[in-house]
């Protein structure tokens, strides 16, 4: 700008320029918002991410199933007595990301482990019933999880997360 303005003597002209510049900045920023907001999940994606119900009756002891919720694989494991015992007896001092087994299952339904099957290292899907801990083994970089889905060995920093869920009845859960 070739217009001279002095900070010592704000003039009416300075005020006008500042006001116009401020209006342009506000308008520009407000215009930017729709262009950013459109990147978020759209209404149909959000609606499709509503809670789902899963019937547990077909899952026998020692078996597990994989269901999808919001595009994420969810492992639902029907744990054996041995798996439950191992999970409960492991001292917290052995764990990289300490958490009790009780905190990862629903009380009265200890045989059911529900975890998001995404390795906390870099997002691969761990394989169930593999590895040294009677739990999950991630083929990508060798992370191993125990029968409570807790990280025991390998590069992953944290336990497999537990999704929000609740028991609707003894044999049915609602995820989400």
């Amino acid at each position: 700008m070739t217009i001279a303005s002095s900070a010592d003597h704000p003039t009416r002209r300075d005020f006008l320029f500042v006001a116009t510049g401020a209006a342009a900045a506000v308008g520009g920023l407000a215009t930017l918002w729709p262009f950013v907001s459109q990147m978020n999940p759209d209404a149909s994606t959000i609606a499709a991410g509503a809670p789902i119900e899963v019937d547990l009756t077909p899952v026998a002891e020692g078996q597990d199933i994989k269901v999808f919720w919001r595009g994420k694989p969810i492992y639902i494991s029907h744990r054996t007595k041995k798996q439950i015992d191992e999970a409960q007896k492991t001292p917290l001092s052995d764990l990289k990301d300490p958490a009790t087994d009780e905190s990862r299952v629903k009380q009265g339904h200890e045989q059911w482990l529900v975890v998001i099957g995404i390795c906390t290292h870099l997002g691969c899907i761990p394989i169930a019933h593999e590895g040294n801990y009677d739990g999950f083994f991630c083929p990508c970089h060798g992370s191993q999880y125990d029968s409570s889905g807790r990280i025991r060995q390998g590069p992953a920093p944290a336990n497999l997360p537990v999704p929000p869920y609740q028991f609707v009845s003894d044999s049915k859960i609602q995820i989400g």
Partner: peptide
Amino acid sequence: VRDVNYGWLL
């Protein structure tokens, strides 16, 4: 137009 955020506007 219906579902994307501000899709109708864009």
